[in-house]
């Protein structure tokens, strides 16, 4: 299964739906993570906040491939996209192991194939480096075997996804 998270206007949904099985709507009309860990310790993979991201961990966790299209913010995701990622830590379990000489959480849905990130908007060289590093870290911590990062000069480049 292929899931797309994007912060573009809704008019792009039609085009993007042809390239994936599901789009997670980034409308910012949801709460930020409150850091309670209940999605680990009380209702696994479910957030206690009953909004559109209530079961987002399951949607992301069950996808072999996650594609994120986001505006650049200081070398990372835009706030509404990051909000979704913050709310989806239930894709991991609370249990930790040593992987790649570092502590990481075990993955609830096993290792998934690919994390692809497409970033647009103004981006300095330093931000580009930071973004690539961030995605590498995300792939490691969220349990993706591979990752890729593409800078979109313009939204017209979406056709390449």
């Amino acid at each position: 299964m292929r899931v797309i998270i994007h912060d573009l206007e809704n008019k792009y949904n039609k085009l993007l739906l042809q390239k994936c099985d599901r789009i997670i709507v980034v409308d910012g009309k949801y709460s930020a993570c409150r850091g309670c860990f209940n999605c680990w310790t009380k209702h696994p993979a479910e957030c206690f906040i009953k909004d559109s991201l209530h079961e987002v961990s399951k949607e992301i966790g069950r996808a072999d491939e996650l594609i994120i299209i986001t505006e650049n913010y200081y070398g990372m995701y835009s706030p509404p996209v990051k909000n979704i990622l913050d709310r989806s830590i239930g894709i991991s379990t609370p249990m930790s192991i040593y992987r790649g000489k570092e502590m990481h959480h075990t993955t609830r849905y096993g290792m998934r194939e690919l994390l692809s990130v497409y970033a647009y908007g103004e981006m300095t060289d330093a931000e580009r480096e930071s973004f690539l590093f961030m995605i590498k870290r995300n792939a490691l911590n969220l349990g993706y075997k591979h990752y890729s990062f593409t800078y979109l000069e313009s939204i017209g480049g979406l056709g390449e996804i």
Binding site: C33, N83, L85, N138
Partner: peptide
Amino acid sequence: VDGVPSHVL
């Protein structure tokens, strides 16, 4: 998730 919490962003 390796970065700034969204509400801080």
